[in-house]
Design a protein around this nucleic acid. Sequence first.
DNA 1: TTGTTTAATTTAAACGATTGTTTAATTTTG
DNA 2: CAAAATTAAACAATCGTTTAAATTAAACAA
Lengths: 211, 211
Amino acid sequence: MVKITQPHIDKREHLINEAIELFAEKGFEGTSIRDLATRAGVNIAMVNYYFGSKEKLFEAIVAKKASHMRGVLDIILANKALTEIEKLDAIIEGYVTRFFAYPTFHRVLQQELLVSSRDHMHETIIELFIRNTKDVVGIIQKGIKSGVFKKVDPELTFASIIGTLNQVLSSAMMCNKLMNKPKDYNPYDNPQFKKRLITHIQCVVHALLLK
Amino acid sequence: MVKITQPHIDKREHLINEAIELFAEKGFEGTSIRDLATRAGVNIAMVNYYFGSKEKLFEAIVAKKASHMRGVLDIILANKALTEIEKLDAIIEGYVTRFFAYPTFHRVLQQELLVSSRDHMHETIIELFIRNTKDVVGIIQKGIKSGVFKKVDPELTFASIIGTLNQVLSSAMMCNKLMNKPKDYNPYDNPQFKKRLITHIQCVVHALLLK
DNA sequence: TTGTTTAATTTAAACGATTGTTTAATTTTG
DNA sequence: CAAAATTAAACAATCGTTTAAATTAAACAA
């Protein structure tokens, strides 16, 4: 007898992945559990069975995926062989690579940053951002103190890095219009576009910081 | 006899303004018409009476407020006395001023850019962005051709300008944490912070473009 | 001004549909 | 056989919207 349903190794993970796609497209409130259950091919009750509630599913999503950039940052920060500007270059590449690998997830995070009604979730995401911000700001400040960097605004410089990336990530349709690609094209699958973005942000940081 | 209700010159406008605040805080789907009616001090039926539907209320919001930057851009573009870099500086100041004057409205727009489920609304907002993008990109390309600007990526340069601004705008709580302000502080009311942001973005553009 | 008529506004109540969640029975698994 | 997973069905609550009656405002003739 042939199995009709896919052999999901971990149904929890499958639900999380499908939820990210739906949340990114329709938003958290705009996505119903029935939408999700249908799309994931499971019963309506399974979401509450696995996660307890819709909101806890959201927390599970954040808990599972949001801390990845921490590891990347820690490795770069611990690398004594890198100069400050090389660290920043590596961080930029790390961010773009990560965001391009999971564009829908980071769209969900951005949505939650904009919507402040789910207080706990909002603060959790901000905490993550703040820690990363302080690390990058620290590198910039160190470079300024040692005289390698010009005296810029460290916090807003990081805002420019992440902001540029988020701007590109916020709407695929907009990217496609600007690149004359068809409407349903996925710009985040395009390695040339990814390279172009990395180069641009690095250029911005170089121009702003290096004397 | 004293009037109990406030003398709203235009109830339509009052509803729009309250809706912007609620949509910015809770999102479009996260805001119920009952929420809005209660907050605005009107009956539940009034939203549909004035706008026809919740979605048309949203369209009314966009139609009323979204085209303002066009006028600002047109004036700057038509000013023959300005050099390219002066135009860009003026555009940056215009954008920051506008966004700081109506931070909640622009948060609503950003949300709608992230959520692509309401197709018509999504495209409308993108059209507005695209037009403005093309104008700014045009200035940068002109500067590059005449040899005044370095050969940068014009589209992504605009993404950096708007992206930096949107990043700052996306969460007041984050701004406050970075500036060591209390949780309920409104950073967009702070003229020094506004000046700081204008200066930073202009610095970025100068560093990136000027030889 | 006056009273009358018509239109615009506002209201409370109800509409059906959909929401997240729970239940209790059933099937699958180890 | 016991535990875990899955199901269909129902739960109360809330959603956007509509209705039909009540109120207010505007228009107009006398």
